[in-house]
């Protein structure tokens, strides 16, 4: 799916009046099937750009085109149908703690399933093989029937990514997919993502803190800072000078992933509190 942003500005709906827009007059074109990495210091507007592209945020000015439709011109039903063909994977994997991994992965299939089929799948999972194959690509096949809250942070993140495989989205928007992964896992996860996108002919846009990984795995790199695109170049043309300018005052973020790998299982979630209302 082709993405076209023309002079787009956006701000978070809850942002206060004096906070500058998270995205300021950004224009961008991503061809169908292209793979792009977005890099830049924290607060550069990378996540906002993904949310905007995913129709999760409405632009305040400018226009967005996905394929050749303007999503915000569609009626709400049409917009929801369009959303089924794109996939936004947030940085914190959106998984209910008490859900089983198999259900969490198969939730990616929901847009293609009717309500009855999805209810029946809760009773007995209908596409176990699909979930199993998706998990296998992220080296998690043994966790199929495990509960989400028994997984480590890194495993959860990979389960969130495996959900992409269950969906048949044509536009994959992935936010910081490696923030909780160690280097070996990161390598594997990025390879899985780019392979999936290539197999499907889907467009892949990922934000990455890990600059080396971005340069190695993506043909096109977009550098963002203060809500604007600073450079948009083929990976081979991105120079050290580009990176230093991009990360000026944030040089510590350039050295490696900003967020430490976190592969420690969380403490068991506390029991639900009784509310006397």
């Amino acid at each position: 799916m082709q993405v076209l942003l023309a002079d787009v500005s956006a701000r978070h709906p809850a942002a206060k009046g004096n906070v500058p827009d998270a995205l300021r007059h950004v224009s961008l074109k991503v061809q169908s099937g292209e793979q792009v990495a977005i890099i830049g210091p924290s607060g550069a507007g990378k996540t906002t750009l993904l949310q905007l592209t995913a129709c999760a945020l409405k632009p305040t000015t400018g226009s967005l085109q996905l394929g050749d439709v303007d999503p915000w011109g569609l009626p709400i039903r049409g917009l929801q149908k369009l959303r089924a063909s794109l996939f936004l994977a947030p940085q914190v994997p959106p998984l209910p703690p008490r859900q089983r991994v198999v259900t969490a992965v198969l939730a990616g299939l929901l847009p293609q399933m009717g309500i009855w089929a999805s209810l029946r799948s809760l009773f007995y999972p209908k596409h176990i093989e699909t979930a199993d194959a998706a998990l296998a690509r992220f080296d998690l096949a043994d966790k199929l029937f495990e509960r989400v809250d028994r997984l480590s942070g890194g495993e959860r993140q990979r389960v969130g990514l495996a959900r992409i495989l269950a969906s048949n989205a044509q536009l994959l928007l992935v936010d910081e997919p490696l923030s909780a992964l160690d280097p070996a896992r990161s390598e594997q996860a990025i390879k899985a993502l780019t392979d999936i996108a290539a197999e499907r002919g889907a467009t892949l846009v990922a934000t990455l803190h890990h600059v080396d990984m971005a340069l190695r795995s993506f043909p096109r790199i977009i550098g963002m800072r203060d809500g604007q695109i600073v450079f948009d170049l083929p990976a081979a043309q991105v120079s050290t000078q580009h990176l230093h300018d991009l990360y000026a005052q944030h040089l510590h973020e350039l050295d490696g992933p900003a967020v430490a790998a976190d592969d420690v299982p969380d403490a068991a979630s506390p029991p639900a509190a009784m509310h006397c209302r």
């Binding site: 959303r83 089924a84 914190v92 959106p94 998984l95 939730a107 990616g108 929901l110 309500i115 809760l122």
Partner: peptide
């Protein structure tokens, strides 16, 4: 976030309820 993420990826409202 869990529910909204499902809705944003095109799931129906009842589906988002049962899965999120």
């Amino acid at each position: 976030q869990v529910t909204q993420s499902l809705l944003r990826n095109g799931a129906g409202r009842l589906q988002a309820f049962f899965y999120g």
